[in-house]
Structure formats: structure tokens, C-alpha cells
Amino acid sequence: MRAYDALPAELRDWVAHAARPWSPRSCLRLWRRAMAEEGCPKRARARLDRAEAAMLARDPGMA
């Protein structure tokens, strides 16, 4: 739970509403990369949404 609590607020909110379970470590890695490349929390969240949608498309049983 500490790892989840240590996530940035925007990312914690995204994880709380995600369609599939994410480990804090994996979503933080994606978040950092998205923030570095996108530079904006809103665009970074959209990128995480796309990553999750791609995962769900590959394995519909995850939804």
C-alpha cells in the first residue's frame, strides 16, 4: 500500500479508475515515461488510457 500511496496524485486517480489492476511499479514506470515525453499530466493520462486499451484489446478476458 505504501507504493500506491507514494504515486503522484494524478496517477493514483488513474489507477483507482483503471479497467484492470496495475502494480504501482509498472504504472509509475509508464507514467514517468509518458510525463517525460508528453510533459503534461492530461496527455500522460491519455497515453496510459491508450496503453490499457491496447492491453485489453489483446486479452479481452482482462476487462
Rank of each mutant, 00 (worst) to 15 (best):
A3K: 13
Y4H: 11
Y4V: 13
D5P: 01
D5M: 09
D5A: 09
L7V: 12
L7R: 13
L7I: 09
L7G: 14
P8D: 10
P8R: 11
A9G: 10
E10Q: 13
L11M: 08
L11F: 15
L11D: 13
D13S: 15
D13A: 13
W14F: 15
W14S: 07
W14H: 09
W14M: 07
V15E: 12
A16M: 02
A16P: 02
A16C: 11
H17Q: 05
H17W: 07
H17G: 08
A18N: 10
A18M: 06
A18K: 07
A18D: 05
A19I: 00
A19G: 07
A19V: 05
R20V: 14
R20W: 02
R20P: 00
R20L: 07
P21L: 05
P21W: 00
P21I: 04
S23N: 03
S23W: 05
S23Q: 09
P24A: 15
P24G: 08
P24N: 06
R25L: 09
R25T: 08
R25M: 08
C27Q: 02
C27T: 12
C27A: 15
C27I: 14
C27P: 01
L28C: 03
L28V: 01
L28W: 00
L28T: 02
R29C: 01
L30T: 11
L30W: 12
W31R: 04
R32D: 15
R33M: 08
A34N: 05
A34S: 11
A34R: 11
A36D: 15
A36T: 07
A36R: 13
E37I: 00
E37T: 07
E37S: 04
E38V: 01
P41L: 09
P41D: 01
K42I: 01
R43Y: 01
R45F: 03
R45V: 14
R45C: 12
A46S: 10
A46C: 14
A46L: 14
L48T: 14
D49S: 06
D49T: 14
D49N: 06
R50A: 15
A51N: 10
E52V: 01
E52M: 12
A53N: 11
A54S: 13
L56R: 10
A57I: 12
R58Y: 03
R58V: 06
R58H: 11
D59F: 02
D59H: 02
P60S: 12
P60N: 08
G61I: 00
M62R: 08
A63R: 03
A63W: 04
A63P: 03
A63M: 02
